[in-house]
Each structure stands twice: as C-alpha cells, then as structure tokens.
Amino acid sequence: MITCREATELHTAAEEGALTGAKKVFYDLHMKICPGCKCYRAQLHTTVDVLKGLPPEEPPADLVSLLASELDEKKS
C-alpha cells in the first residue's frame, strides 16, 4: 500500500507513464479507493487546464519588419 502523502507526489509521474511495477499497482489501487486523493488529482488537472488556458504572449507589432530588415542587411 502507499499512503495519501506518497500518492500526492506521484500524480505527474503516473500521468507521464513513469510509474512501473509494484509502485504503479499500489498507486492505481490507491486512486481507485481514496476520495481525498481523487479530489487532489482532479484539482491538479484543473490547475493544468487553467495554465494551458492562459493566453499566449503576442509579439510586438513591429517585430517581423525589424527582423526582415535584419535579414535584408545581412544579404546586402
């Protein structure tokens, strides 16, 4: 068996397919029966979804033309 405290350290490893052997078996079993850890894992997923939903940084409007002129200079 693994404890809840141990399980909280394993969620990312589990998701990335890095758990093997007995550790994986115990983790999977723990996640089937422990409501607290299920809730914790769901909150981690929500956290990741929020991070993924943050809007990207937009390039400044003049960046492409600045870089284009850099290219032209290099050629001439």
Binding site: T3, C4, P35, C39
Partner: peptide, 27 residues
C-alpha cells in the same frame, strides 16, 4: 512536499483532505 505535512495524519493518510472547488471549471 507537494502538500503541507499538517494536512496528513501520523501514518500519512489525509487528516484534512482537499474539498471540491465550487464553480471550478477551468473556463
């Protein structure tokens, strides 16, 4: 620690488990 130790009991099971967040869809 990913979670503060005070949230667990002596044997490492939740003493204060997380509770579901209200209105918590990522959107």
């Amino acid at each position: 620690d990913s979670v503060d130790r005070s949230r667990f009991g002596g044997v490492g099971f939740w003493a204060k488990p997380p509770e579901p967040w209200e209105n918590s869809s990522p959107e």
